[in-house]
Write a protein that binds this DNA or RNA. Structure first.
Length: 443
RNA sequence: GGUCCCGUGGAGCAGCUUGGCUGUGCUCGCCGCCCUGUCAAGGCGGAGGUCGCGGGUUCAAAUCCCGUCGGGACCGCCA
């Protein structure tokens, strides 16, 4: 307040200008459109909260019009002026009559991408691409979705932990991990918090969750895979069965989708043309064997590799069958055979050929794998031996079952995939802030 | 890793099958001028490309052939 000279009015977010009619304000953002005429000049400026028209009549303020003429699309600017009602203005019915312009940072012309540019070029210029309202909404939804799940779990006594991403041994299967140099020897990037969240259970945390990066060294060239993505993992102690885990997840997702719909549903409808449907609970459940049976009856012809599992086409077809039969967009597929599940999945009493596990498929895409874990040391060791897993590299993990470990189970969700499904995005690239894939490490 | 597809001014495409004479065209953007308040602004004019790269066939290649690089979709793997 002690500054000499002209005082700048306080910055007002564009989204709040409607309640500031008559006030002197400063608005800051990016130039979206310029319509510079003989007598009138119009600047459309956008910030995170919206867009507004700023207007100048050239004859009013000598010099100001030349400053406005010098603006370019995409430049970062701060303008001051008075907010007025302007019913004729289609953009919100208000405008700002400009008093002064501060061209803070000029954008070169032409811009290297347009809204119509292909995804690869857009990813090269991701910071520019992300300025678009569509991309901005994507990550606003992602943030809300994540926060909503976090608060849901927190209210149910989950403790949020952060487990290491640098590991001395591969966490599950050695083939899929990135090896990095570690002071002359090797470390591995975590492909899952799996072992650590189970160790947290043995450590006395009743319920734990983590939202964090997951690294996969698979060269997967699809629209739904990335080599680094954000996962939500949770683990619960003293469960009675894997059903407890599925119940937690369906309530979790229903609550989070409800919150997103209530807060951002209208914007999502406008920008993505997607009407969010809050799923009813419980979600349909189907043992894998039964799912395969129904798929065969519907004409499914799996590839050779899908002799015991579902392939992508099977997942999509199954979702279609479930939608027709139950009117539901989710389906838990349960009781996966031992052959396609890791050694630490528990096997139910009476049927040693399957596991107490599930996948959750959302509109044709696998978004979760979960299971009850084998917490009995001798059984776990036997199952590892059966799968040919050497115990030495994972001794610290196996040890946590030797000194009292409660029954427990949990799951891992691919958050980027959830976001992709929620907004019906065509590729996980759109749901990743800065995508990482086999062919992309930059920016 | 496998199969298929794409690569043409700044962006998005057409042109390629049936090679042809300086690389023709469309939409958008950019630059300049004009324009009584625009709002997907409008009007007029202009600049901008060794047709991803290398080799081959041919009198002649954006166009046909081979290789290579970059990218995408699907499969497999998974979340």
């Amino acid at each position: 307040m002690g500054d000499e000279g002209r005082q700048e009015p306080a910055r007002v977010l564009v989204g709040q200008l409607g309640s500031r009619v008559g006030d002197q304000v400063r608005v800051c953002g990016w130039v979206q459109t310029l319509r510079l005429q003989r007598r009138m000049q119009f600047v459309v400026l956008r910030d995170e909260t919206g867009a507004v028209q700023l207007t100048n009549r050239r004859e009013l303020r000598p010099g100001l019009d030349q400053q406005l003429d010098a603006l370019t699309i995409g430049s970062a600017v701060a303008l001051t002026g008075r907010v007025v009602d302007a019913p004729q203005v289609r953009l919100g019915g208000i405008e700002v009559l400009v008093d002064s312009v501060d061209l803070v940072s000029t954008a070169e012309q032409p811009l290297p991408i347009a809204e119509t540019s292909n995804i690869d070029l857009r990813l090269d210029w991701r910071f520019l691409d992300l300025r678009a309202p569509r991309q901005h909404l994507t990550f606003a939804v992602g943030d809300l979705f994540e926060q909503s799940m976090r608060s849901f779990l927190r209210a149910r006594r989950f403790t949020e932990l952060h487990t290491p991403k640098l590991m001395g041994a591969a966490s599950e299967s050695g083939a899929e991990v990135f090896r990095v140099d570690y002071f002359g020897s090797s470390a591995y990037l975590a492909q899952s918090p799996q072992f650590y969240k189970q160790m947290a259970i043995a450590a006395g945390f009743d319920r734990v969750m983590e939202v964090g990066p997951v690294f996969r060294a698979e060269p997967s060239f699809t629209s739904r895979h990335s080599t680094e993505f954000t996962g939500l993992d949770l683990e619960m102690a003293w469960i009675d069965s894997v059903d407890d885990v599925m119940r937690m997840e369906e309530e979790l997702l229903a609550a989070a989708i409800l919150e997103v719909r209530d807060s951002l549903g209208q914007e999502i409808e406008e920008i993505f043309g997607v009407s969010l449907a809050v799923p009813s609970t419980p979600f349909p459940r189907l043992p894998l064997a039964e799912a395969r049976e129904q798929l065969f009856q519907a004409g499914w012809q799996p590839g050779e590799r899908a002799s015991e599992d579902l392939d992508g086409e099977g997942e999509r077809l199954l979702s279609k069958l479930v939608a027709d039969k139950f009117g539901h967009q989710f389906v838990f597929v349960t009781d996966y055979p031992v052959s396609v599940r890791p050694f630490y999945h528990m096997r139910p009493d009476g049927d040693p050929t399957v596991t107490s596990s599930f996948d959750l498929i959302w509109n044709g895409l696998e978004v979760t794998t979960g299971a009850q874990r084998e917490h009995r040391y001798d059984v776990l060791v036997a199952q590892a031996a059966e799968k040919g897993i050497p115990l030495e590299p994972i001794g610290h993990y196996v040890n946590c079952f030797r000194y009292g470990c409660p029954p427990h189970g949990g799951l891992g969700i691919g958050i980027s995939r959830l976001l992709m499904k929620l907004l019906d995005l065509p590729s996980i690239r759109e749901a990743s802030l800065f995508f990482r894939g086999p062919n992309r490490l930059t920016p």
